[in-house]
Structures are given as C-alpha cells and as structure tokens.
C-alpha cells in the first residue's frame, strides 16, 4: 500500500463515526475473518487507524481498494456536501438504449480524451443509480484521490447530480457526460442542496403529493353563544382554507429537505404612495434568499399559519412545481405581473 492510499484510508477512518465505520467495513468485505475479529471498535480512533492500516498493508491493498471503501461510505451517506443538478437535453435516437456497460466504456474514454491522468471508478447502486468517482490529475501530476468529484446518474433519466466539482473541470465533465449518454446538450437545472435524496425526490416527484380537497373543520363546543360560534366557524373556515391552499402548493406529509432558494429580482418598484419610484424606468434590483433546515416545510407552514397570504404566489410554489431553487425574476412586459423566467447563466 503506497503512501497516498494510506493517507486516504486514515482520513476515511478519522472522519467516519465508529458505528458507521463498522457497518461499512462489513459491507466492504475485504478483511479476513481474523482481521475483522482483531479490530476493536471501542478503541480510540488513532489505535483503530493503526490497526486498519496494518491490516490493509498485510493484504497488500492498493488505492483501488481504498477508494472502493470510500465509495461505499458516500453511497450509504448521500446527504453530505453540496449537490448540484444538471439536466441532459436533446437526446439522440439511441439515447434510450444506452446500457451500463456502454456508458461506462464511453464515459471513461471520453473523459480520458479530454484530460490526462484521471482515475474513474464506476459503481452501480441497487436503486438503479450509477455512482461515479473521479480523481483528477493533470499532465504532470497523478490523480488527487483526496479531492474526488462524485457524479450520480440514473440511466435514461435526464438528471445528473454532481458534488465537489471545480469550475475549471466542469466543462470537461459535462461534455463527457453528454457524449456518453448520447445527448446533444446539457444545462444547469438550477437546483442544489445538501441532501442528494431530497433534490432527487423533488425532481422525480417521489414524495407525497396527495392534494386533499377537503379538510375536516374542528368541532365547535356546545356551550358557547351563537355569535361566538359564528366567529369561530369563520375562523375555522379561513384556517382550513389556508391549510388546503398550503397543501396544494407544497404537497402533504414529509417534504424533501431543501436548504435554500434564491431569487434574483429585477422588477419594477410599484407603490401607489411613492410616485418617484413607481415612475422610475429602471427596475429595482435585489437578491432574496430563503433558507431553513427544511425550506418547503417552512414555506408550507407560513402559508398554513397565515404568515404568508394565500393563495401561495407562483414564485414560491415554483420550487416544488419546477424542481428548482434558483430563479431570475423580471417583468415580462411593462406593467404586467412578474413571472419566473429562464435564468441567465
């Protein structure tokens, strides 16, 4: 085992919680039964690292074995780091028939044509997704396995999720992906987040989207005067209405965990009490960012509780509807209402 492989192994062990490490090592299934028995997970990390490095040296493991361990970890814990979404467009006639073997070969050869010294590892996961790990090097240096890029793609779907990609390498990767999936172009899908599963669910609409048409209104208590009852009924109706509309805009049940949404706005400032600004020709430029631990949940709560007026504005309901969290907003015609337009990238 060379030095860089040892360093990668050390880092993996150091960064992984012991519980997770135990499960991952079992899944990896590269250590002998005796070696596995000798590893004591109650020991401190540094002792654990020492023991595992020794075991791997004993088995004469190479970098590829260690990257395999890393891939298992990343695939099992997809909700780390920042994931960006790209969308394949203009499929060629044979795009639907690309299989894993073909894609694998094509992708590796395309990428190697574009860049020397890249190390690519491809693994098919049980949920049909293809996981690609790319370690980048250049003409003079060997691939850097400490800063790999991860790509997740489900064959025949238009979406590709990428994490840890520098802007310099982005065009190369996108080009290789476009060619090997038999498409003509690829574009930014304007969706990003910390949780891969969440942004994938949002795009594939794989979350509960049952839109109820009726809500039971709460039962009124009997011993109240009639006028109170009426007021309460009215309140209950308004509240039920808000809940319905919040559900219609964002869906019910658990929502995919998005962390933020960004709106770049260049719209006219309109205020009947402020003539100077309303008559101004230039738009009012601002950037609005909403963030929360679960953005869609927060927005739904805002609408349901009355913090936000209902019906929910299309600007906000576009997030789940269009599966995007980056928007550029301009007035489509002078005096007309604003709408979401194609972002300028």
């Amino acid at each position: 085992m060379d030095e860089s492989a040892t360093r990668l192994l050390q880092r993996i062990v150091r960064r992984t919680p012991t519980e997770k490490l135990k499960a991952t090592l079992e899944k990896w299934d590269r250590l002998t039964a005796a070696q596995r028995r000798s590893v004591d997970f109650t020991e401190p990390k540094w002792a654990l690292i020492e023991k595992l490095v020794d075991a791997c040296k004993e088995n004469e493991f190479k970098m590829k074995h260690i990257t395999e361990l890393e891939m298992i970890l990343v695939i099992e814990n997809p909700n780390q780091g920042m994931w960006y979404t790209f969308q394949l467009v203009d499929p060629e006639d044979d795009a639907q028939s690309v299989d894993l073997l073909q894609f694998q070969e094509q992708f590796k050869s395309h990428l190697r044509e574009l860049k020397r010294n890249v190390s690519v590892k491809i693994k098919k996961h049980t949920d049909q997704a293809v996981w690609i790990r790319i370690a980048w090097g250049d003409s003079f240096s060997r691939p850097n396995h400490l800063k790999p890029t991860y790509v997740v793609h489900q064959l025949q779907s238009p979406y590709i999720f990428v994490s840890s990609l520098t802007s310099k390498l982005k065009p190369l990767l996108l080009q290789a992906l476009t060619f090997s999936t038999r498409h003509l172009a690829i574009k930014d899908a304007n969706l990003s987040g910390r949780k891969l599963t969440a942004i994938r669910d949002l795009l594939m609409k794989e979350y509960q989207q049952v839109f109820p048409t009726k809500y039971p209104s709460p039962l009124a208590e009997n011993n109240q005067t009639l006028s109170n009852l009426n007021i309460e009924r009215e309140h209950a109706e308004a509240s039920a209405n808000r809940h319905r509309m919040a559900g219609e805009a964002f869906g019910d049940g658990t929502l995919p965990e998005l962390q933020f949404a960004v709106y770049k706005m260049e719209t006219k400032f309109k205020d009947p009490t402020n003539v100077a600004m309303t008559e101004r020709d230039e738009p009012f430029r601002c950037v609005v960012k909403f963030s929360s631990t679960n953005l869609l949940e927060s927005l739904r709560h805002c609408a349901a509780s009355g913090l936000a007026s209902t019906p929910v504005t299309p600007l906000l309901s576009s997030i789940p509807l269009k599966g995007r969290n980056y928007f550029v907003i301009t007035d489509n015609a002078p005096g007309a209402a604003s709408r979401a337009q194609q972002p300028q990238i």
Binding site: V287, V288, K289, F290, S291, S292, T293, N294, L295, E297, S298, L299, H301, C302, S305, L307
Partner: peptide
C-alpha cells in the same frame, strides 16, 4: 415558522 425561515 416551523422550522424557522431565514430571509436574506
């Protein structure tokens, strides 16, 4: 809101 919503 729940969870709290931050607006920049």
């Amino acid at each position: 809101s729940a969870p709290p919503l931050q607006v920049t």
